[in-house]
Design a protein around this nucleic acid. Sequence first.
DNA 1: TTGCGTGCAAAGGTTTTGCATGGCA
DNA 2: TGCCATGCAAAACCTTTGCACGCAA
Lengths: 126, 126
Amino acid sequence: MYKTYSRNALSEFFKENKHNSYTSLDLIEIFKDSINKATIYRNLKYLEVNGFIHKTYDDKKQVYEYMYADDCDHHFHLKCVKCGKIIHLHCDDADEFISHIKNEHNFSISENITTIYGVCEECEKC
Amino acid sequence: MYKTYSRNALSEFFKENKHNSYTSLDLIEIFKDSINKATIYRNLKYLEVNGFIHKTYDDKKQVYEYMYADDCDHHFHLKCVKCGKIIHLHCDDADEFISHIKNEHNFSISENITTIYGVCEECEKC
DNA sequence: TTGCGTGCAAAGGTTTTGCATGGCA
DNA sequence: TGCCATGCAAAACCTTTGCACGCAA
């Protein structure tokens, strides 16, 4: 893997903003002075294929979003549809639920590509 | 609600294919001889707003998919990433999982907009 | 008759691609 | 040197919109 300016800038950005997710257009805007949009798209794909970022999905914006992938293969992501916050769910009950679905419903859940939508505590109050 | 040819054709199609989901492009292709694509888009939006179809998301195709909505607000959808089949999950353990997430993690899951991805029984064998 | 749905074509927005250039191993 | 990344512009692609027409209530 080449370390290039664009690739570094993008991956550092994701690392520094672990708790947010961004659409491709967000990133094009953020880096508009330094990185061409074709390069943004190419590097998003690259970083995703190489497991550095995790592709998720925002129901409101109708587009993919990308987020920092920190060993994201083994837990669910809860995403608040109001504020956009992503919660990495580490929970034994979730594991049990997955086992139950596997054993009783014969379906093997892939946590890494599943995003569970809902409303977080703070937004529930509003 | 007007009953028009296009709207009827689309909703009947969804009803007859309850266990599949379709992208807008699938539907444009299927109805290419009888319905204009602008009308397809307008009616998909209409049917979705009126709760007749349910909008979901396919990780592979990077687009929305639409499926027949049969009281889909109160259960999870399991989608097989290999064959595309959608399973409407009616399961007490899922309800318990949702309660747990609500009570212990303070997050209110919206089942109606969440699709859980994984691999179904048949595809697991391959 | 009036309002809504439709078809067509054009516009709008997002993503991908081809090609020439430049940088890093 | 050779491979890969990049920028630019064009192309491709999907979806939305404006407008005129026609059908349904």
